[in-house]
Design a protein around this nucleic acid. Structure first.
Lengths: 188, 188, 188, 188
DNA sequence: GATGAATGAGACTTCATTCAT
DNA sequence: AATGAATGAAGTCTCATTCAT
């Protein structure tokens, strides 16, 4: 009764978009899962595409906030990397679908400028981190535009695999994965 | 006349599926791009989903063949890694869309068992490679099911970024990326 | 506060029905323009169609009253015609939308019996006037059922054209139009 | 079999638009009456509004052609008027719905520029006729923009009334109506 | 074998109407 | 009494698939 229908719709859409993709998810499906009438969705979102972008922006916002929150700006590069890695894992564990959803819907055909800009803020954050690390001679001297997908791609695919249940998510696993990712981008 | 209509259809579908995704690609679009009638597609493929799976299997086949071909089974782990990495890059350069298409359509909702099995053969190949490397104390001791997405995710995202034009694909770049990926999975 | 909500709704509906037509006018549109809640409309009118008919009947009532009011029952046919013509013009000037609305919604699909009956009273009034004129040998000997649409059609179309701004509504214009209409139906 | 589906659709739409109006006519209704699938309509017309405009333009074309055809350009004004009047009646008799449809859908909300332009050609034709008559001192000296709606309105309403079955369409009737209309616009 | 016109199921979306507040 | 959020029936339109040519 006191539940927020807008939230219900976003939550239902998140699950369905993540599981089936935007195009294969119908508005009635979302309405059913959110337990609202189909027309209600249009009281909160102009259309399906706007719903996607609202959802995307909220997810990216929460994702990026999680990463920025408590970032050790004056710590070592290694400490900063540790923070980023564990906050990503933390977010992916707590908001399993949101994390998958973001990566699987990074599509200029679906996202408006605002959405793309918001995701790029995260990329910029990563770029700054990498460049500072390179200036200190700690991060490997490759274009950050290459290092970012290497690191981000590895983490996303790993967490996606974990989400699928292929591997068990233990602390040891993530410690090992962090090691791998750090080795991927640091100077040897 | 001597051109193979089946091939034309598969080629057109490959480009469209890669660029727009399966659901956002219509059969008439494929027919147009393949310069055949819409009905003709149904003489070669039972339906759109079967077409996708045929395409997927042919792409995975070519991808996997590229990697297996000339694999230095009796070389060092490092040499084997080099082979795998450069064959993936080679394939991605030569068959840009096929490589993107495979990763972006790894979806159990769309793929039949046969298709999934075929992709898993590649995963199994990678697993065997990693386990042998671990037995020799060269590859980092993490579950291969974790190492594979780390390596594969990094490569896919990097090549996808290159395909989008964000970074220029030079030999130096790929040499650097190989270094990163190798460092990610090797023992230190 | 002291304003009558029922009147506000009718007034808003009149403007919208006239400008857009019944089918293209939505209940929320009416509610917005009337500055009431959508649900409020249903406290005053059973449904949209009933609202239309109430509005129609009130408009026809006011229209017919304007014409009957001060009708020179014992004047000459020409004087009576003058009265009718100028009262129609007077009404159309004072209640621009009401006049347009009546003619544009003379549709048996939308109007109930009561509404049609009410409009027919005006037609009957015109018929009586014409027949009496014919009996005096002043009005042209054509079926009143033909003379009425000729006269009414001419006036309605003329006033509609004026409403659209194509011609400027001056006293000279209306004097000329009266002349035309009178010539149309009188004996020569 | 050999029937033209495009024609069937236009014919069905004409009947329904005339009887119910554009907004109250659904695409499935048109499809049913045309005995085609609903989707077929969209093979011939981009959307419902385009269908309306195509239909409108074809109707106006036929209407205007009927009037222009055999117009006695070098005859007397009275002869020209006779021609126009009888060709309108002729058209309205032969294409009952087309004639009603044109007048009832003269709505800038529905018609595109092309459609409006096409109808204005008819208006321009009438204007030229009236001005020439005025120059010869035969047509009443009122703005043609006022005379046109008077004449056109009278004829449309009369024919609409006849179409509704209120009056019987005899040659005598139309002779009388022509007399009325001519008297309405001529000099006395 | 090849075609593309035709189809109708099902998608997105609107809106008249209801009802809890 | 008044509201406006909520609903779902029904509208417009798309597209995978069929089939007569």
């Amino acid at each position: 009764m006191a539940t927020n229908k807008r939230e219900d719709i976003l939550q239902a859409a998140l699950l369905l978009f993540t599981e089936r993709g935007f195009d294969a998810t119908t508005v009635p499906m979302i309405a059913n899962n959110a337990k609202v009438g189909a027309g209600t969705i249009y009281r909160y979102f102009e259309n399906k595409e706007v719903l996607l972008n609202c959802l995307f922006q909220e997810c990216v916002q929460r994702f990026f906030n999680t990463i920025r929150q408590g970032f050790p700006g004056s710590g070592t590069v290694r400490q900063q990397f540790h923070h980023i890695f564990y906050q990503i894992v933390h977010f992916a564990k707590r908001e399993r679908e949101a994390f998958s959803f973001i990566d699987s819907h990074l599509n200029p055909r679906l996202l408006n400028e605002e959405s793309q800009k918001m995701f790029n803020e995260f990329i910029d954050f990563m770029r700054v981190f990498l460049i500072k690390g390179q200036e200190q001679g700690i991060i490997y001297s490759l274009s950050p535009d290459a290092l970012i997908p290497i690191f981000y791609g590895a983490v996303v695919k790993l967490l996606e695999t974990a989400r699928a249940g292929v591997i068990v998510e233990t602390d040891e696993l993530f410690a090992g994965v962090e090691e791998c990712c750090w080795n991927a981008i640091r100077v040897h």
